[in-house]
Design a protein around this nucleic acid. Structure first.
Length: 882
RNA sequence: GCCCGCCUGGCGGAAUGGUAGACGCAGCGGACUUAAAAUCCGCAAUCCGCAAGGAUGUGGGGGUUCGAGUCCCCCGGCGGGCACCA
């Protein structure tokens, strides 16, 4: 099979009309670099229109993948387009360089995490540069640079001074064999991924950022983010999870001896959004981590066994909620706040989360699905207290499920007859009057635990002193650097097991003390990097003049998988930095675009092995369907599903190989042309080959026309006939591509450029100046997408021009050429298309109706029936109702 | 389990509530060539029909409307997130 890398020896004319991307792409990249086309000052001049384009920075895994290529291509189109529109564009790049994979590499291959990371960065930087991105590399940094994480430590201390940092107990996944804390993804079916040991929950004292202090503001401010996708705002709102309800105190019928040396427990607090259903209560349930569960476990081995079992479930909410609902009756009982003399059993339940509300619920199985399932399983009573509209209170019974809709309260004493909303209010009033509870707004959002018991992260800058407590590291001792000499052969956190690193003098009293050995969650690193880019070498976290000028990011682009956590943490961090005087704004990202994933077919050999695409050869079966066999043999291969590219499925395509074979412009063009950027795209060999053909066609279109073109600058005004038609196509395409780029419809922009290329190809002789105008226009319209080819074409069309396309302004369409003289209207009868008519754009309605009615096929459909209604949508449609 | 999306020809997709399928990929036919590749031209949702034309059609079912891919309700399939992967 022939391909783009085969040098074909044919007549010299053909040879001449072939775009040699291999020499052109590096040449233009060097020229952009030489002219510093993409450099901007930290503080732009006052009259500059600034525009900050940022793609989510990559984790330096070693090689760029197609997801990166897609992400950075999208961002680069925006950056180049906005620059052409007259903005001063900042477009930086860096590395999200701390994290688990570097430690895994260290354990598995004995390579130092730092060495591994910086090698990966060098590789990936070179690969990204080959894409021809309009990035200002002078701003580059990695989060594992001490210059970066040292400034992060300053922010940590500033946040601490501002009351945004606290220490709390929290639960982690603990691997008892490896002696390490496990990430959720390292827990597989309840076992540690390396040791295979059953994972336990363990309580540790950890560092937290007080994100909940901003819960209300983080929720309200979503409204103002008018250039964010609605679904992302919705996901964030649900995550923050504001709910109105009540805190209810249930008195234990007898005090319970607490497990730890603490005063006995005599009541349990519950949060509920349904105080209206209190009369439907049938049990109370606490989380396995609740003090009352501990008290039960202390005196009852069965309760202890159940609590231990819950501890083996891990900390992931998905695991907990998907597990079968199970419980254990503690034997304790609580009194009902309203029903004199009534009491209910207290259970420990595996679906109650300690982190939400108070870690305890009251169960009303009649009107809550989870409570219903639980009550049905353990034979607990189910009393309906909400009567659906129109139901009969005498004969009403729940049929196999809870009723969670609106209705009227019954079986509920003083609440009877009230609607749900009114009953909630009345119940809260009654609770408050009796001192048994209070109305309350509760949030699902929890404080952000940032402690990680790992080496490859930003050290948390505190020192533990027996005498002085937890003492901040003084500013002049920052950064707290990671030690270089670390031993990954021992279990546990290498910082903790390091012989000397943690032993320091207390900054306050000078006595021997211990350094904090926890490092930061890597989400902290990515929560302010966008601000650091504005003044990347500053000796402070950010310089005010730079961030005040450049922030917020005007267009942020990245994967939908970050819709909640990364974006929420960055919004929190920006508020924290504002309140500690580093910034003036609250919202970091004015515009957000979330791209889809890159997918590919997967392939499996007969023995069930995943195969790389380059190991497979394709053919066509007798029935026309595609077949696949192993290359260099004919062992059958199964073509599997199209799914997200992943190393484990081996359905990956190496961007480097694609650029070698087709060039960066082709890769970029295919990615943009395939589908809308917010959707998942499928990488196909045929698609990229098609994109390559188009790039060559464009080159031929220009190169073949050169000899016949009038000199540059020849006016095309006053053109008639063919030439005018071409000029209309030119200006309509400028308008259409501009609109498409403004709305992220890059695939539509590509389609319009294809149509335009067809129109130029069809344009007849004698269109001289109009043809030059068209070729120059198409060159400049493709420039954000295929920047190297555009420079090459521009140099052919304007050999004497000194400016690069990258330095030219965007084109403006001539409104006079956008107008049409006639318009085609669809003519419908009863909403069904029966014909079309061509009318002058300014034709009056009577003329249009007469013309439409006269149309032969329309006549046949009306068939003499009287017309009851005539509808005319100007420029679109005529509809007759008969 | 909970929250959020997506679903249109063989494939990717286009379409301010107004001619569904633009444009591209793959396919088929033709031109060029000794031949192939490359290139250029043409055809193409499905079914019926020689044609004119008709019927069906945007995951399935229902609704609103003169008119629904688009708005509303229910269902199905696929995907993202669920707080220590990044």
């Amino acid at each position: 099979m022939n391909d783009a890398s085969t040098t074909t020896r044919r007549d010299s004319h053909q040879q001449e009309l072939r775009h040699d991307f291999r020499s052109a792409e590096p040449r233009w990249q060097a020229e952009w670099e030489r002219r510093a086309c993409f450099a901007v000052p930290d503080v732009p001049p006052a009259d500059a229109k600034k525009y900050y384009v940022l793609e989510m920075f990559p984790y330096p895994s070693g090689k760029i993948h197609m997801g990166h290529v897609r992400n950075y291509t999208l961002g680069d189109v925006v950056a180049r387009y906005k620059r052409a529109r007259g903005h001063m564009v900042m477009h930086p790049m860096g590395w999200d360089a701390f994290g688990l994979p570097a430690e895994n590499a260290a354990r598995e291959r004995g390579i130092h995490p730092g060495t591994w990371t910086y090698q990966n960065i060098a590789n990936m930087r070179a690969e990204l540069k080959r894409m021809g991105l309009s990035i200002e590399w002078a701003r580059e940094f990695a989060t594992c640079d001490a210059e970066y994480y040292g400034q992060q430590q300053k922010l940590f201390l500033d946040f601490h001074r501002a009351g945004l940092v606290e220490r709390k107990e929290s639960w982690v996944n603990w691997d008892p064999v490896d002696g390490t804390v496990l990430a959720n993804e390292q827990v597989i079916d309840g076992r540690g991924w390396r040791s295979g040991a059953l994972v336990e929950k363990k309580q540790l004292s950890q560092w937290f950022f007080s994100i909940t202090k901003y819960a209300d503001d983080l929720l309200r401010a979503l409204e103002g983010l008018d250039r964010w996708p609605e679904r992302v705002k919705l996901m964030q709102a649900n995550w923050i999870g504001r709910s109105e309800g009540a805190r209810v105190r249930f008195r234990l019928t007898a005090p319970v001896e607490a497990a730890a040396p603490q005063p006995p427990i005599d009541d349990i607090e519950v949060f509920t959004t349904r105080p209206d259903t209190l009369f439907g209560m049938s049990f109370l349930a606490v989380a396995a981590e609740h003090p009352l569960a501990a008290a039960a476990a202390a005196r009852d081995p069965q309760a202890a066994a159940f609590v231990a079992e819950c501890r083996r479930m891990g900390t992931s909410e998905a695991t907990i909620e998907q597990a079968e609902k199970r419980g254990h009756d503690t034997g304790f009982r609580v009194a009902h706040p309203f029903i004199e003399g009534a009491s209910f059993p207290v259970w420990i339940a595996n679906f109650v989360l300690m982190e939400y509300g108070t870690g305890a619920i009251f169960g009303c199985p009649g009107h809550d699905e989870r409570d219903y399932e639980f009550a049905a399983k353990y034979g607990l009573p189910i009393t309906p207290v909400v009567l659906p509209p129109g139901a009969d209170p005498q004969g009403f019974a729940l049929e196999g499920a809870a009723y969670t809709g609106e209705g009227t309260i019954f079986n509920s004493g003083f609440l009877d007859g009230l609607e749900v909303t009114a009953a909630k209010r009345r119940a809260i009033e009654a609770l408050e009057a009796k001192g048994q509870g209070t109305g309350l707004v509760n949030w699902r959002l929890r404080d952000w635990g940032v402690s990680r018991q790992r080496y490859w992260g930003c050290p948390i800058p505190f020192i533990h002193c027996a005498a002085c407590g937890v003492v901040p590291v003084p500013d002049d001792q920052l950064p707290v650097r990671l030690p270089e000499d670390v031993d990954f052969s021992k279990p546990g956190n290498p910082l903790d097991t390091h012989p000397t690193w943690k032993h320091v003098a207390c900054p306050s009293c000078g006595q021997p003390a211990r350094r904090e050995t926890d490092t930061c969650d890597t989400f902290v690193d990515s929560s302010w990097y966008f601000a650091r880019f504005c003044s990347p070498r500053a000796a402070v976290p950010v310089t005010r003049e730079a961030v005040d000028a450049w922030l917020p990011v005007d267009q942020y682009i990245g994967g939908i998988e970050h819709a909640i956590l990364h974006l929420l943490y960055s919004r929190f961090f920006t508020r924290g930095m504002r309140d500690t005087g580093h910034l003036a704004i609250a919202e970091p990202f004015a515009g957000l675009f979330t791209q889809g994933m890159v997918t590919h077919e997967s392939y499996k050999s007969a023995d069930g092995r995943w195969l790389y695409p380059e190991e497979v050869e394709f053919g066509t079966a007798a029935d026309g369907s595609r077949t696949a066999t192993l290359k260099g043999g004919n062992a059958p291969v199964t073509i599997g599903r199209v799914e997200a590219m992943s190393k484990s499925k081996r359905n990956t395509v190496d961007p480097g190989a694609i650029i070698d074979r087709y060039g960066a412009d082709t890769a970029r063009w295919f990615i943009l042309s395939d589908n809308p950027p917010e959707r998942d795209m499928e990488w196909t060999e045929a698609g990229v080959a098609g994109a390559y053909r188009f790039s060559q066609r464009l080159y031929r279109l220009v190169a073949a026309a050169l000899d016949g073109l009038p000199p540059a600058g020849t006016g095309a005004e006053g053109a008639t006939g063919e030439a005018k038609k071409l000029r209309q196509a030119t200006h309509r395409t400028i308008a259409a591509v501009t609109e498409a780029l403004d709305s992220f419809a890059f695939n539509v922009a590509v389609a319009r450029i294809h149509e335009f290329a067809n129109a130029i190809g069809e344009a007849g002789e004698g269109t001289g100046a109009a043809k030059r105008e068209a070729l120059e226009a198409i060159t400049r319209l493709v420039a954000p997408m295929m920047p190297h080819l555009a420079e090459e074409l521009w140099s052919l069309l304007r050999p004497d021009e000194t400016a690069l396309v990258a330095e030219l302004p965007w084109l403006e369409p001539d409104p006079a050429l956008l107008r049409a003289e006639t318009v085609t209207l669809a003519v419908q009868v009863l909403g069904k298309l029966r014909g079309t008519i061509e009318v002058a754009v300014d034709a009056d309605e009577a003329t249009i109706f007469a013309l439409a009615e006269a149309e032969e096929n329309v006549q046949r459909s009306i068939a003499g029936k009287p017309i009851r209604k005539r509808i005319h949508v100007p420029g679109r449609v005529v509809n007759f109702v008969v």
